[in-house]
Amino acid sequence: MQLSAPIYRLKRRARLLARDENIPLNEAQDRIARKEGFATWSLLSHRLGRSASAASLLPGLADGDMLLIGARPGHGKTLIGLQLLLDAVRDGRRAVFFTLEYTERETMERIRSLDRTGAANAPEIVTSDEISADFVVRHLSVAPPGTVAVIDYLQILDQQRSKPPLAGQVAVLQAFARRTGVILGFISQIDRSFEPERSPVPCLDDIRLPNPIPAGAFSKACFLHAGEVRPQRIG
């Protein structure tokens, strides 16, 4: 089903409706969703996420690639990262999801939304609070070339003060990927300053980076917004 407007405009309509009629935002969102043909806003968002995740990134990746997956919240970046891992499993590869954001149960719910076979084709899920560059390198120390791992998400790798700065961790992971042929994907937040009116999808300049990362750290990127998916080569 084609939406009458991009998702960011529908969200804006919902916020205005909530303000004008003094109703909760979730009620306003559900009203907007019903006008679009969905029973609730969550169903509309889920449909959008499924649309984004339908794009397969795996054929465009080479051993040792560093992939950035960037989008604003609710636009499908986690789902497209999980879809990449599901495709890797189906291709006979090792696939690992390192997440500092979701529990194993929450991750499996998202996997089931993409693949009804669930655990049969699920990637390995790692939810340890200790996830960092060194943790990932140790965990994948014997992984064969072509292994695919996705880290969720880039901006909280150094949230704990006991962990090295983000730039150092990304440099370690880049060297590891080049040395071993493991493909590393990084789910990334996009800064609030991103303006969809200026560009249909974000770009590298829109990545939210409280701490700088090395120039040229990523070899590939995929940016998403309002159901549009744009993979690209960097450099």
Rank of each mutant, 00 (worst) to 15 (best):
V170W: 04
F38K: 02
L166Y: 10
D63M: 09
K77W: 01
H139P: 05
S162E: 15
L86Q: 03
R112L: 15
V148Y: 07
V229Q: 06
P214Q: 05
R105E: 15
I213L: 12
R198S: 12
R116N: 12
I151F: 13
G216Y: 09
P24E: 11
E228M: 07
D91F: 06
L86C: 07
P164Y: 03
A55E: 13
L25S: 03
E27T: 10
Q189T: 04
A143R: 00
N26W: 09
E130W: 08
I151D: 04
F194R: 04
R178T: 15
N22V: 09
Q29I: 08
A88T: 09
L48W: 00
R15F: 12
T117K: 15
R179L: 13
V126G: 11
V142Q: 15
R208V: 02
L79I: 01
S193F: 13
R161Q: 15
C222A: 04
V182Q: 02
F194Y: 15
S219A: 06
D115Y: 06
A95H: 09
A149W: 14
F135K: 03
F97M: 02
T180D: 12
Q83F: 08
I7Q: 03
Q189F: 07
A55G: 10
K11P: 05
R161M: 07
G185S: 01
R138A: 14
R110F: 13
P6F: 06
L84Q: 06
M108E: 03
E130V: 13
I111Q: 08
N22W: 02
D63Y: 12
D91H: 11
G92S: 05
W41P: 12
Q159P: 08
A167V: 08
F98E: 11
R178Q: 15
A39F: 04
H46K: 10
L43F: 14
P231E: 00
M1N: 07
L48E: 08
P214R: 00
Y8G: 02
R116G: 05
F186C: 01
I187Q: 10
A39T: 10
Q2R: 11
P202A: 06
I187E: 01
A133N: 06
G49H: 05
A95N: 05
Q159R: 15
A33M: 01
R94E: 14
L48C: 05
L86R: 11
R112K: 13
H139A: 15
Q169S: 04
S45L: 14
I125H: 09
L3A: 00
D65W: 08
G181L: 06
V148G: 02
R110S: 13
E101G: 01
I125F: 13
G92I: 07
E36M: 14
Y153P: 00
A95T: 10
Q29E: 10
S199M: 11
Y8K: 00
S219T: 13
L17T: 03
R179V: 06
Q232L: 10
S56H: 11
L82P: 02
V137T: 06
V170K: 03
P210G: 15
A18Y: 04
A119T: 06
A39R: 14
T127Q: 04
L173Q: 07
Q83E: 14
R233T: 13
K77N: 09
L3P: 03
L140I: 11
P145L: 02
R230K: 04
V148H: 08
A171S: 15
S199A: 14
L43A: 15
A119Y: 10
A215Y: 11
C222D: 01
L100M: 12
R34F: 12
P231K: 00
L86A: 07
Q2C: 03
L184S: 02
R112W: 14
A133Q: 06
L166V: 03
D115T: 01
L114G: 05
